[in-house]
Nucleic acid binder design. Sequence first.
DNA 1: AGCAAAAATATTGTACACAATTATATGGAG
DNA 2: CTCCATATAATTGTGTACAATATTTTTGCT
Lengths: 151, 151
Amino acid sequence: MIEEEVLSSKDDLLKLDRQLCFALYSGARGIIRMYRPILEKLDITYPQYLVLLVLWEYGQMNVRDMGEKLFLDSGTLTPLLKRMERQGIVLRERSIKDERTVLISLTDKGRMLKEEALSIPLQLANNLDIDRKEYETLMVALKRLIAKMNL
Amino acid sequence: MIEEEVLSSKDDLLKLDRQLCFALYSGARGIIRMYRPILEKLDITYPQYLVLLVLWEYGQMNVRDMGEKLFLDSGTLTPLLKRMERQGIVLRERSIKDERTVLISLTDKGRMLKEEALSIPLQLANNLDIDRKEYETLMVALKRLIAKMNL
DNA sequence: AGCAAAAATATTGTACACAATTATATGGAG
DNA sequence: CTCCATATAATTGTGTACAATATTTTTGCT
């Protein structure tokens, strides 16, 4: 009996239930799923929402800096930003100072979306039924983890 | 001064730094990025690794049950499992009892991969430099959150 | 038995992610 | 001033995610 437990303990490390990464992975997908119906009303996806968050907070920015904020590369951002440009919520223009860079900025439509977005954080918090303390605890733990990764 | 702070507090809710979802999203991607070089040696991706974890733990299973374990639908799983079949690590066969279902099982190659995978959890824990306690705390918090989502 | 509804998987189409490569522009060494 | 290493985006190719739809099989009902 005891031997059996000892023997099985190595296998336990591979149980799905014990995987921190799977908890993160499914947690992220789950919460993005909760954003979906809300963001659909603004006709944007979650990664597009992240781009807007950055632009609302910092204003005009080139692709590289945007990528540093979101941990995304040009392979992901270029087509994503082109879609947002087609929808008329951002502008993409080559910098005159440095023709290598492309500056991303908000259109009036993009700026106006912020008004509609102001209520989103609260909606999410309500839907998740999470209190301020639990929120902060999880946030701190996640940031400690992220800090340890070589992003 | 005070007014300004009050006025800006609403905006703060939209700051990237305050988004639990972004922390989850980038944390998940960051940790999957740490798995990549390790899983590359086994010639599998992270979602494929999850499929193997399920099969190693539970044995043969149909697509629906696999999807319930991983929160993935057939639209994602079917092509993923076909790729794994081409690589010779799983078998896909229509059930005789119920021709609607497709049973997924491990090949010898798939079973043998488990031996190589046994060291992965420890490698990850080391690379992340996370201790048992912090690990458990984060795990509990994440599971509480996931339980509140309607997956 | 016969048939409509439900169940399981597959397919189609869109949108990320990301590695690897390409194309263009800049800046500095000689 | 020229050339070359570096920097920045874009492109290409592969692999997920997921909504919506289609296909096939089973089940429940009369």
